[in-house]
Simulated scan of single mutants.
Amino acid sequence: MKKMICLSMLICSITGVVCAQEKKAVTNEDKTFELPADKITRRFWIELDKGNKMQVELVSINDLEQVGNLDSLVRTFLQDLLPLKDSLSDELSYKRIDYVVDAAKAKKIRIYKGRSNSNSYLIQQGEVAALKLEQDTIHFLGSVKSDGKSVHPYRFSFFVNNWNELAAYADGRLNDKLHSLETKYDRDWTRGEDGRMHLTKDYLISAKQSRGYLSRQGDELHLNAAVGIQNYKNYFVPSFSIGTAVIASSIFRNKLIRHEFGLYWEPNFFFGKDSDGKARVYRNDFLTLFYGRGAAEQPGKKAELSFTFSLSYLIHREGDYMAPHTFRIGAGRMSLFEGRTKLEPLFYFNDFFKKVTPGIRLIQYF
């Protein structure tokens, strides 16, 4: 018994997501020119021409209404860039330009230039010309107030063959595309041959998932521990459980759905007296298979399992409290106190649903 308690305490102390990753320190430059981490919930791509593309990143689709005139923003950007035009004159280097307009309407520009480690050339009709293969990237970063309260960042990004091609798109096309996205995004989406979802009413607008949702959910392995208390017939039975859960998304097509598979060892404790009249604890262990499904975690929205099912089998029996070969089914869990506490209805039975006994269990996760 002492060994089991020590083991449970050890596993509880390491409960959490099993992962190892280094976090890069956030610099003042990152805070100025990069999107805040885990804020964006929607991402859309808009095809332009000549292989050029535009990317739209938002917290809420409703923010588009407050962004304003994108064509005008592009023209203002090009005007602000004129004093720096000489620094962009090297046509063979690829550029990344970050353009930030803050709440006080102050503008900040960052320019990065890079070159490939190799030289590329185009030979045509005996003429040799240097060849640029990488596109230029221009980011427009700003923010709007949502409902007059929360500040929502947004970013429009252009991936173009040459940064000065951006001027040709500020002729009303960009505003038209944003208007099309804003008014049609909640309609039908079609999966294209490229594997992406395309807006049926405007096929040039696409996203990885329908309606542009971003899923933060990847495949994860969790070590979980919990304590519980339930009724069985006229007994009051405490328990604890230890096991692993796999959060799977890569094997499923729809990554907006969270699938959880778990395997748990669960000792249940009955208190009684032995043949000598001495108080004794009788341990009855279940091995439990668990499956849950629900919406994947989104920024600002916690993942919740809308459907759960568990099947348990009695693998260790002490005393005469439970019949040999007892099974237990749990169907559905109600979340309490921010999701760490669950209430689950149970059904115990043996010999193919003979002697069915209902119960209810309160589970507290660590």
Rank of each mutant, 00 (worst) to 15 (best):
F349Q: 04
N164Q: 13
D98A: 06
I229Y: 15
S275H: 11
F159E: 15
R75C: 03
D98N: 05
S206D: 14
S118H: 03
L64F: 03
M54D: 08
M9K: 02
T27K: 04
G68E: 06
L263W: 09
G126M: 11
T15P: 06
Y348C: 01
M197H: 13
T357G: 03
I242P: 00
F337H: 08
I97F: 11
G16R: 06
E266F: 00
S72P: 00
L311V: 05
L336K: 05
L199I: 08
I329C: 08
V56M: 07
G277W: 11
D176T: 13
Q66C: 01
I315L: 07
Y94K: 03
G319Y: 06
I229P: 00
S146G: 12
A331M: 09
S157L: 05
Y291P: 07
T183A: 10
E47M: 05
N175V: 08
V237N: 07
G228W: 04
S157R: 11
I61R: 03
I360E: 09
L305H: 01
A103K: 10
L214R: 12
K301D: 12
R96S: 15
D147F: 10
T341F: 12
R361P: 00
I205L: 10
F140K: 05
I40Q: 01
L178C: 09
L336D: 03
K233S: 13
V227H: 00
G114S: 13
P324M: 05
F240Y: 14
P238W: 05
L336G: 08
V144Y: 09
G243Y: 06
I14A: 11
D63N: 01
D188Q: 11
I242S: 09
V246D: 09
D194S: 06
